[in-house]
């Protein structure tokens, strides 16, 4: 049992740190690809920008500036610094509920990237700057895992992480394979970039060897049971966490749990032939839509429930 507002803030910490990590990785991969010449580099920029909802083709030609904006633009709600500032603001609001170890890790990272010298630091060594953020976020998640009690608050934070991750990966795959404005990506360099953006290259290679093709990539990022950034992995975690939370809150079979179970089953029993036949777009759109519904249902069940239903008799 915890304050509804606190649960909400913990959930949003999870979402924002996941988004910050993902966008850092998109920007890093984009910058790295921009060093090469050829179709792969251009496609990589397009994928990264489409995955964050920026479809302006002109920006893709200026990969460095685009990556810099994704990282540092405070006015842009989806930028890395903005996400970190929001995560930290939420953490400050629940400072009494999180451990000093987790708070200080996040606070330090926020102060570092929101300091005056951040732009110089980025221009000086963009790859190092972004890798530093990703590494610090891994430390934060490690501190969450090893210092917070694995109780209700921890579960809300992790649901935020997994729900955000499922949506981000779905959007990334949509940008590659079901973007109405661009043909599906088949260029090998771009496909490798895609795997890097999902932090999936090495785990993928261990399963499929260096045979990089869209079908395997879809199979891996949609359905793999063990890879922590596959959508199936995320939905399984979301369902398990919601089951524990609903039980703890005495909420029984909440809407959130029902929706999460249905999404998990959809991924569990789908297979890649089906997906190929009907196009990945249908499934990816369903994943994105249902994640949004789960988000709403969590809010209705645990945070913004009507008061009159919960008064003691």
């Amino acid at each position: 049992m915890m304050l509804a507002r606190v649960a909400d803030s913990l959930y949003w910490i999870g979402r924002y740190i996941e988004r910050a990590e993902h966008v850092s990785r998109l920007a890093a991969v984009m910058l790295n690809a921009a060093l090469d010449v050829g179709a792969g580099a251009a496609q990589t920029s397009r994928i990264a920008l489409a995955a964050v909802g920026a479809h302006d083709a002109g920006r893709a030609d200026h990969a460095y500036e685009a990556a810099r904006d994704l990282s540092l633009d405070r006015e842009e709600a989806g930028s890395v610094v903005a996400c970190l500032a929001m995560a930290r603001e939420n953490a400050r609001q629940v400072r009494d509920q999180i451990t000093t170890e987790t708070w200080e890790q996040l606070n330090m990272l926020h102060l570092r990237v929101n300091g005056r010298a951040q732009e110089e630091a980025f221009d000086d060594d963009p790859a190092g700057f972004l890798q530093g953020i990703i590494a610090d976020l891994h430390l934060f998640k490690g501190a969450v895992d090893s210092t917070l009690s694995h109780g209700e608050g921890w579960r809300f934070l992790l649901i935020g992480v997994y729900l955000e991750r499922a949506q981000l990966i779905a959007r990334l795959l949509e940008a590659c394979f079901s973007d109405r404005k661009s043909p599906p990506v088949i260029e090998p360099i771009a496909l490798m970039s895609l795997l890097r953006m999902a932090c999936a290259l090495e785990p993928y290679l261990r399963v499929y060897t260096a045979d990089i093709n869209p079908r395997f990539i879809l199979e891996f990022l949609l359905f793999d049971e063990d890879f922590p950034r596959s959508i199936r992995f995320c939905t399984a975690r979301i369902q398990a966490l919601l089951e524990q939370l609903s039980h703890q809150a005495g909420a029984g079979r909440s809407d959130a749990l029902r929706l999460a179970g249905r999404l998990d089953a959809r991924l569990k029993y789908a297979d890649v032939e089906e997906v190929e036949a009907s196009g990945a777009g249908t499934l990816l759109a369903a994943v994105a839509g249902e994640c949004a519904q789960i988000h709403e249902a969590i809010y209705e069940t645990f945070v913004a429930y009507p008061l009159e239903l919960s008064l003691p008799g």
Binding site: M1, M2, L3, A4, R5, D96, F302, L307, L309
Partner: peptide, 26 residues
Amino acid sequence: VPLVEGRDLAVHDNRVYMRTTAGLRR
């Protein structure tokens, strides 16, 4: 102990409650 804000509290029948994830708590 919980750190509450005004918006976390609700008063009903002269009793004070806070909104938790498991409903209202005294």
